[in-house]
């Protein structure tokens, strides 16, 4: 069966996420990241940040909700039972700090069949309240046996 590619180029409504100190602390604790700039506002400001700063991979917390409508869109047609995360790229720019309101937009950039598996690639772009780009993500999802 040929894979559906109608959704290539499609974007979905943006999601917004307000970064908060306690959520940064929770994420850093799970990853065992101990730098006080993630826990203590004084340490963060001393290091030149506006407020407690998120570790780079905290990007998953504020960017991933933008992908939910894309993943469930019947036009994309992902079979969740056979879905695995194949690859991931993040490119960071402005750091994300507590208080930032980050808006993320997801776009489907490619759908391809390779060796019987479906490769669904989405790009997310996250910007803060000043309009500065915070992170760009490339999410490769593989559906086994399309």
């Amino acid at each position: 069966m040929a894979i559906k590619t109608d959704a290539v180029g499609k974007s979905w409504p943006s999601t917004t996420y307000q970064v908060g100190r306690e959520k940064i602390k929770e994420y850093a604790t799970v990853l065992g990241i101990e730098n006080p700039v993630h826990f203590d506002v004084g340490a963060a400001r001393e290091a030149g940040f506006r407020d407690v700063v998120a570790p780079p991979m905290f990007a998953v917390v504020y960017a991933m909700p933008s992908l939910a409508p894309a993943m469930f869109d019947p036009e994309v047609g992902i079979n969740f039972a056979q879905l695995v995360h194949g690859g991931q790229t993040f490119e960071w720019d402005e750091p994300a700090c507590s208080g930032d309101v980050i808006t993320t937009t997801a776009t489907c950039t490619s759908i391809e069949e390779k060796l019987g598996n479906g490769f669904y690639v989405f790009e997310t772009t996250s910007v803060n309240g000043d309009g500065a780009e915070v992170v760009r993500g490339t999410w490769t999802n593989i559906v086994r046996g399309v």
Binding site: V53, P56, G86, G87, F90, P95
Partner: peptide
């Protein structure tokens, strides 16, 4: 030294 500004890009395959 754990500086969160240092990492500019990370790409992985799972």
């Amino acid at each position: 030294g754990g500086d969160p500004r240092a990492l500019k890009k990370l790409t992985v395959q799972f």
